[in-house]
Structures are given as structure tokens and as C-alpha cells.
Design a protein around this nucleic acid. Structure first.
Lengths: 337, 337
DNA sequence: CTGAAAGCGCTTACAG
DNA sequence: CTGAAAGCGCTTACAG
């Protein structure tokens, strides 16, 4: 590959001039510009991004720290979020680096990514990576709330407690007083939030907490989301009594529906289903159409990117945004009263 | 951020030594190693990836050139492919840079990405980017066949012609002799391949090409895949006669199913549906379960990454792999004879 | 086992 | 409007 030096030499100018032609950071006469551009084209010269990054100390790349999942593939929620991140970053001229490399303990192996900032999905409780990014002085925005709460870290999140509170309210008002909750994995802050929200709704209605039977997703026991819904319902139905099931995602609901079909359970006749989900398209295409919560995953991603880009330009920026989620009533839930 | 120089100074060694402690490329005595590591930790030093990349002329990053789609979000096929790419790259220590920046005409704006190689999804006909990467000396692997054929470019692909040939055969053997084909957009090589395959099956059975009515997806007319299936069936049903419909993807089939429900068409009683698809999970959860083609999108992605990594280590590598696809018979198709 | 120094390919004050 | 030179933070022969 031709370098800026080669071009400068052939065009008979200094490399500062070649640099300026490409960066347009200082004016270069029309003649020189044209000559340089022509030579560059002839030689197949393209500015080297890495060298440029080193010189200006910016890469124009945003890192996206994915949850560490070796086997499982991305969920619909994650995908939409990523779409949002990509869209916003592209719009502002940033590239996106997917960081899905496993965590290393060896400090020797821990090299800093070539990024100007990072968006981290689904932080865990007391996530050590938050401190590490701070220490490295890399602007960080979380998608999902930090736990414990920390007023200095940027994040966007749904109000998950409120989401499940609303769902609980809705079910209780419709006469469902025993509920199966197929929640997410228990090491995620979102799981706790949701469980609390649901409990709150139940308590308000003067029902015992035992009205809800909570199950958590486990990577060990379930190969994927749909399988989770399918095998959980099959395992539990008959053992516990419930008239409604709340699922982690629409995919889980899909599994529940299949198990119900096989068990001869009519939905929503015998059992109501609500998905804490996101994929509006899918929910609408399923029969019966799925009553579900619209989480606006794509907006979460886009707004996280927005905040991050702001913060990269002004380190003092701190923003914490709650994206509204809303319950969309469709056909998979019925009134008992 | 502390630099290698700072650490060297404080630890009282040369920066070459610090470098060696981290890269392990030459042996450093235990005492020195420990001292350097301790100082580094105290100072919060992490090797700068960009500077390192410039020095060794490698970034350990693989670029993933996405199709240029401003509005639409990634399809299930793309997502699985990306999953495959990420998985394989992670395994081999590579990061993945999503390149979804719009193409620029301005040569001045065209900077080379900080990548060691690139995987490009869905090349278009006579795709100019192929030459450009060659010119830049960046190893390239396509997912999808180059058109025109070029023995020097690496790619992985399904045998799309054969896939639709098989689907055509299957339908014809089951007595379907008029078919609606909701194909992909017409500027993609895959569309042409599929159409040819289907035509071949029809010709072999001595039927006229008019037995199949081909529609192409259009970004203008359809907001997304499901909508495409939905509105296409609604628009065409009754105007043309057909007993079976082949859809581009499972999402399109979902739209067809919804339209059918609204039109009072029983599937597969009145109309058979086959999806040229990928998402096995989804296909199995839909009622009726979808007869579909398993394209192994994830494998496509993983093998593309594998080939690319080989090629990055040995530029002379040229591989063209066809990933087998197979028709999975489920419930959405019936025999007419 | 360790150090001094050149080099990777850019950018950017500084000077004219 | 343009050039010369230092600097970005690493790696790597070369020498000892």
C-alpha cells in the first residue's frame, strides 16, 4: 500500500500538504489539490486509519460490549438494540466494534480496544467492568441500570419495575390471582426489578406473594428462549395452579404456546399469556396475537449511542434516561371477571 | 492515560522491556516482570491498541460490510450470519467491526477501515467494492456468490439455484403447477439464481414458464418483510391463479399467513406455502409449522470467517465453499395428487 | 536477559 | 497557501 510519503514524493509536495488535501483541515490551492488527488488515485493511496487514529487520538469507533454468551445467539431484543446503536452511530459517522471477546483474567492479555467510547449491554450486579472503563478513561453508557445505583454513570433503561407492575395490575384487575412468571436469568438486574414490580402489584391488591410462581431462565437447563417457554410450561403445568403466564420475551411465549397446544390448553380460553417483549412484528403475527409490552429496544440502542457521542465530546456529560415502555393489549389474555 | 514510556521510567527499565513484558515476545526475568506489572497496575496502564496496530501492521479486527439499508433492520438471516461470524472470530481472537457506513463518492472521504480483512454480505452485480478491496490489498471473503463469476475471489454461499430447483421439483411432484414466487429484491444475485432454478424445474416438467408468477421485493413498496408477504398476497390473490406460494423468507411467509387468515384461505388446504428461509425456530413455532429450506446462515458466517482468517495468514488462499441447504418438510404444504 | 534507536503512517503547531 | 519537523505510543532488529 502506498503511503502519504509516497504520494508526497511523486506529487512533489510535502506530506503535510497531502494530509491537508484529504483532511481538508487547511486550505490547499486548487492546482495542488488536483495533482495530489490524481497521484493518489494512480497509486491507489488511501489514508491509513490506524496511523490517523494514533495521531489525532481518536478512532471514531464505538465499542459495543456484548453479554458474554458463548453458545446462545443474540435475542430479538439485543438485535433491535444493536440496530439502534448502529443506526445512530452511522448517522454521526461512527463505526461500531462488536466486543464479544471473552473476559481475560491475565492483565497482560488485557489490551484496550481501539475505541473512543463504549456501550455496554446488560451490566451485571457490581459489574467490575464499569470501574475498569472509568479507570481507562473511556466514556461509557450502559443499556440497563447499574446495580448498585450510581449517579455518575450514564445509562438508558426501561423502568422494568414499573413495566411488570403494570402487567401485574392488568392481570389482577382482570381477575387473575395466580400467575406463573417465566423471568429472565436471575443474575441480571432486570430480573430483580421485574420481580419486585410484580410483587408490588400483588401486595397492593392484598394478595399473598405466593400468588406468583417465579421461574428463572437458566443457560444450563434451557437451550434457548423458545425451549425455555416450552419445557417450563410442560414441567409446571398441573403442579402449580395459575390462570396466566408472564414470559420474559415473545420467543419464550412462542414456546409456551406450543406446549399449550400439545397439552390441549386453549389460549386465552384456559390460560392467558403476556410477553414482556419487544418484537411487535412477531407478536402481531402469532395466533392468537400476543398481548405484550413494547420495550422499544431500538430506541434504547439509539439513545445510548446519542448520549455516548455527546459524552465523547464532553466528558462531563452525565445522562440517565428512562425509555417508556407500554403494554399493548392484543388477543392472548382474557378477563376472568 | 499512562503510556509505555511512563511505566518504563517509573519501573526504571526501557520501554522495550515493558513491551516485552506485555507481549511476551522475548523473555524477561521474573523480578523485572513483576516490578513492571506492579507499576503498570498502579499507574492504570493498558497497552494502546492503536499504537500497537500501527507498529505491527495488524489490527486483529475483521470488518463486516453490511448491505446498505438505511431504514430496514437486519433480517433473521443476516443476524444468524453475523452470529456465525462473531462466534468464529471471537474463537480466534479477532474483533468484528460492523461497517454500515454509507458509501461515499468523494474519494477524499474514503478512508481505509482499521481492519485486517473483510467479509461482505450480499454483493451486488458487478460490485465495485470487490475491486476496491483488491486494490487496497485487503483480504476479502464474500457471503454470496460474486456476479460475474470470478475464480480468484473467496466466497461461501448456498447453491441457491439448486435450492429453488428442489423446491420447484417438490411442488410439481405434488401436483402444484401454478406457483406464486415472492422473491427477494431483483438487484441481488440470489434472486436471479433462485428464479433460474425454479424455471429449470418447471421446464423439466414440461410446463410453461408462465406457470410461475414472480414478484420481487421492493424497498419502496414494502415497509418490511412481513408486510411484503401480507400485501403481496392481498394484492395478487384472485387476479392470478396459484395453488402454492414460495416466499423469500419465513418472515414473508408470516405475512402471507396473516393475509390468508383475513381472506379466509386455509393453509395448507387451499394454498401451500414454502419459505426459502433459515429460522428453524420460528418455522417450527408457527401454526401450521412451516415447510422451509434450512440455509444454515450461521454456518455461512462462521465458514466465511474461517476462510478469511486463513487468507489473512496466507494471501494466496482462495476458497469457494458451497454450504448445503436442505428442504425440511413440515405442515404448510399439501399434495394435490 | 536488557537497552537505544529507528520505524510504523499519519497530524499539527510553527514558520514563512 | 505550503514545508520541515516533532510527536502520537507502540514494536523490533541490532548490539551487548
Amino acid at each position: 500500500m502506498a503511503t502519504i510519503d509516497d504520494v508526497a514524493k511523486v506529487a512533489g509536495v510535502s506530506k503535510g500538504t497531502v494530509s491537508s488535501v484529504f483532511s481538508k483541515k487547511r486550505p490547499i490551492s486548487k492546482q495542488v489539490t488536483e495533482r495530489v488527488l490524481e497521484v493518489a488515485k494512480d497509486m491507489g493511496y488511501f489514508p491509513n486509519h490506524v496511523a490517523r487514529s494514533l495521531a489525532i487520538k481518536k478512532t471514531m469507533i464505538v465499542g459495543l460490549k456484548m453479554p458474554i454468551s458463548k453458545e446462545s445467539t443474540m435475542s430479538g431484543f439485543e438485535i433491535q438494540m444493536i440496530n439502534g446503536v448502529i443506526r445512530e452511530c452511522s448517522k454521526q459517522g461512527y463505526r461500531v466494534l462488536l466486543d464479544s471477546l471473552p473476559e481475560h483474567d491475565d492483565p497482560t492479555q488485557f489490551s484496550i480496544d481501539p475505541i473512543d467510547g463504549v456501550i455496554m449491554l446488560n451490566p451485571r450486579k457490581h459489574d467490575p467492568r464499569i470501574d475498569r472503563y472509568n479507570q481507562m478513561n473511556i466514556p461509557l453508557v450502559l443499556i440497563g441500570r447499574p446495580d448498585p445505583e450510581d449517579a455518575s454513570v450514564c445509562y438508558v433503561d426501561n423502568d422494568n419495575t414499573n413495566v411488570s407492575f403494570q402487567v401485574g395490575e392488568y392481570l389482577l384487575q382482570n381477575g387473575h390471582s395466580s400467575i406463573l412468571f417465566l423471568n429472565a436469568a436471575d443474575d441480571m438486574t432486570v430480573s430483580t426489578d421485574r420481580q419486585n414490580g410484580l410483587y408490588e402489584a400483588i401486595t397492593r391488591h392484598g394478595k399473598p406473594l405466593s400468588s406468583v410462581h417465579v421461574v428463572n431462565y437458566s443457560r444450563k437447563h434451557h437451550s434457548h428462549a423458545t425451549d425455555y417457554g416450552y419445557s417450563a410450561l410442560k414441567a409446571i403445568y398441573g403442579k402449580h395452579e395459575f390462570t396466566a403466564v408472564i414470559t420474559d420475551t415473545d420467543r419464550v411465549a412462542l414456546g409456551v404456546l406450543r406446549a399449550a397446544r400439545e397439552l390441549g390448553i386453549d389460549i386465552p380460553g384456559d390460560l392467558s399469556v403476556i410477553a414482556l417483549s419487544n418484537d411487535a412484528t412477531l407478536a402481531q403475527e402469532i395466533t392468537p396475537k400476543l398481548t405484550s409490552v413494547e420495550l422499544s429496544a431500538e430506541r434504547l440502542g439509539a439513545e445510548a449511542a446519542q448520549i455516548l457521542i455527546q459524552k465523547m465530546n464532553d466528558l462531563s456529560v452525565v445522562q440517565q434516561r428512562i425509555i417508556e415502555a407500554r403494554l399493548v393489549i392484543r388477543e392472548s389474555c382474557r378477563k376472568l371477571i
